[in-house]
């Protein structure tokens, strides 16, 4: 039997013993030590009201997030839609642009859902150039069949009333894993619903776009649930919730993404097999701080956006 209490204090409430982190104990005098607990009690609810005064955002100023067009990275988050079938426009799930910019083309990287066409887009831009692909969920044929099967939405569009295949608490894990190639095509930027690859997407292995975007190393502002130039496009009806945002400095493999999905139960990403590549990690356990160990900037929640109990 493992250690349950020390001097009548529950082991779960002890962070250090004689200055040593409990996480660093393999065992004490042959006694097994319980693994560090991982709490998943809160998510972020993004207000459907728009503007910076209602945003869920960070404004990095020290290079923690400034990926280039030719760098590999992975962005993953869990989402519980709050929008309705009458949204009829797009909702931005993840957006980043140059810090302080009000332009949609300043080193822009975004993942957004266009409700009126039932398409999930991954796109990055620099000036008039961009790389793009999208994934359509209601057509069970051709390039779209994989996304149709992965999402499980059927013929109806993605919304609060039709969340498709979900993990714990009705959240879906959306992941974009980009390679070093300057392309949003499915051979280079793979998009996953939970742990399942969405296939080639509409524009296929090479994607589409205009010109050759060259992103610079300027620091970026990041928003969940809105864009980062007008802080609009946040949905309608009810608040969309986000949880466990991880950003990695490599293209995670399908196996590593499956490990992160963990059969639908959010896990402590610092224990993931690729944890050494974890760049930023936001658990949103009633605070917006970074848990990656890299001392990244914290998310701020403004206005009616709030941490919400699961």
């Amino acid at each position: 039997m493992g250690i349950v209490k020390v001097n009548n204090i529950p082991w779960a409430n002890i962070s250090k013993v004689n200055g040593i982190l409990t996480a660093d104990f393999a065992n004490i005098m042959g006694e097994s030590v319980p693994e560090a607990s991982f709490a998943d009690d809160y998510s972020v609810a993004k207000s459907i009201t728009t503007g910076t005064g209602q945003a869920v955002r960070i404004a990095d100023s020290d290079g923690h997030f400034n990926f280039l067009h030719n760098q590999a990275y992975t962005i993953s988050f869990w989402i519980k839609p709050g929008w309705s079938a009458n949204l009829n426009t797009n909702i931005h799930l993840f957006s980043s642009t140059t810090v302080g910019s009000t332009s949609s083309t300043a080193n822009m990287i975004r993942i957004y859902y266009h409700e009126s066409h039932n398409r999930l887009y991954f796109q990055y831009k620099s000036g008039s150039t961009n790389k793009t692909n999208f994934y359509l969920f209601h057509s069970n044929s051709g390039n779209h069949a994989a996304a149709y099967a992965a999402a499980g939405l059927g013929a109806s569009y993605w919304s609060a009333a039709n969340r498709g295949n979900v993990g714990d608490n009705d959240f879906t894990m959306i992941t974009v894993a980009k390679s070093t190639t300057n392309s949003a095509g499915a051979s280079y930027a793979k998009v996953y619903w939970n742990g399942t690859w969405l296939g080639n997407g509409h524009y296929g292995a090479n994607g589409t776009g205009t010109g050759t975007p060259i992103l610079t190393s300027d620091d970026r502002q990041i928003a969940l649930g809105s864009n980062t130039w007008t802080y609009t496009k946040s949905g309608d009806s009810t608040e969309t919730q986000f949880n466990d945002l991880t950003i990695w400095n490599k293209q995670l493999s399908a196996t590593e993404i499956s490990e992160l999905y963990n059969s639908g139960t959010r896990l402590d990403a610092t224990g993931h097999s690729a944890a050494s590549n974890l760049q930023l990690y936001y658990k949103f356990e009633n605070d917006g701080t970074d848990s990656s160990g890299n001392s990244g900037p914290a998310f701020t929640l403004s206005g009616n956006s709030n941490f919400e109990s699961l």
């Binding site: 728009t50 797009n90 779209h144």
Partner: peptide
């Protein structure tokens, strides 16, 4: 639109019309 904004000009170029989809 359901969010009381509107359609941005860039969407006209980026949200390609595909018949039947």
């Amino acid at each position: 639109v359901g969010d009381n904004t509107g359609i941005e000009e860039s969407e006209f170029d980026e949200i390609e019309y595909i018949e039947g989809l």
